[in-house]
Design a binder for these strands. Sequence first.
DNA 1: CGCTAACCGGACTCGGGGGTCCGGTTCGCT
DNA 2: AGCGAACCGGACCCCCGAGTCCGGTTAGCG
Lengths: 194, 194
Amino acid sequence: MALAAETTTQTRPQRADARRNRERVIRAAAAVFADKGMEAGIPEIAERAGVGKATVYRSFPSKEHLVAAVATERLDWITTLATQGLTDDDPAAAFERVILAIAERQASDCAVAGSMAADIHLPELDAARATTHAALDALLDRARDAGALRDDATAVDLRVLFTGIAHVLRESHEHDPAVWSRYGELIVDALRVR
Amino acid sequence: MALAAETTTQTRPQRADARRNRERVIRAAAAVFADKGMEAGIPEIAERAGVGKATVYRSFPSKEHLVAAVATERLDWITTLATQGLTDDDPAAAFERVILAIAERQASDCAVAGSMAADIHLPELDAARATTHAALDALLDRARDAGALRDDATAVDLRVLFTGIAHVLRESHEHDPAVWSRYGELIVDALRVR
DNA sequence: CGCTAACCGGACTCGGGGGTCCGGTTCGCT
DNA sequence: AGCGAACCGGACCCCCGAGTCCGGTTAGCG
């Protein structure tokens, strides 16, 4: 019975220490991915969690599953942000605010862009991606209908621009929020109607 | 004696077959890098050149040297393009034309963006990069002075936007010139004055 | 308290890419 | 043609990260 709802579906009861370690691992992974990006290694995550590699693989069958878990959190965050933006009175300003908020967070958390860029296909992650994509498209549509964006702007463009820029800035260890905000502006300008 | 000037400095005379293989390797590398990006492996390049790995390492002490050789060619091409743009009557149009030309070539040659993104520091390559950077900055300055670009636009922005987008599009195996031209436009729009 | 199932983690294998070595071959000068 | 130096490439080494195994440990129920 004990079908206590967890963050993720938990079919069988586990021991308390196992549950605790799973949480430690996912926290450590989020921290490491935030610093180094999704390409960070499992050994580093395990060490940061104060745990052996095997323990990581106990809760997450492969590295992809671990990445997916963190990425899903970030995608859900973006979805919430974009959905909130839909209720804003000024569609163009709402769009800009959302992009800048994402860019700002990315300054201190590489996993934001990483979650959009990850080339991983697991049901959980695909679903989160689809939801985020839909929310962003809605945000774009509203701004376009208000005459603020170019006709062919899509959420794909957003992903390409944002994850691309993020990739380059991460390699140069850029963490200055001002720089990130500025590139957020550039993205907005790129999609704005001429 | 025999100090015949080569493309790259050649201190000692080599045998003809060695010289021929060097050329084959660099052609193969350019082709592979164009298809797969600078992260392609040496084995693949050697095979494409019809040569063993060791022969690759005979002419190029490390993979970085090989990448640098191809990257320098591409950077020189960009430099020529940008320099020609400087003589154009319309600074804004010249800027746009150059960006679009680069984007168009990138559609079928990943090494263009790769040459700007490569995190390699060899004298030859650093020099080429500096020259390209200067030429692009001059192009930007002229367009800005004409009132076409935002005040803070730099060649660094160009590199960040272009290599970033290229990175994402390469991963999705995008080779359609139309798509590339469109992203070229987006880059131009991003840097345009509002 | 005691016992068993579940869990833990250090040590292991496996695969792939960069870089090197040596026995056989070829160039090219005489 | 003959010969030595230079060159060729298949086989090898090393490192690093993903993923697995087993002997020791601990939770937690009766």
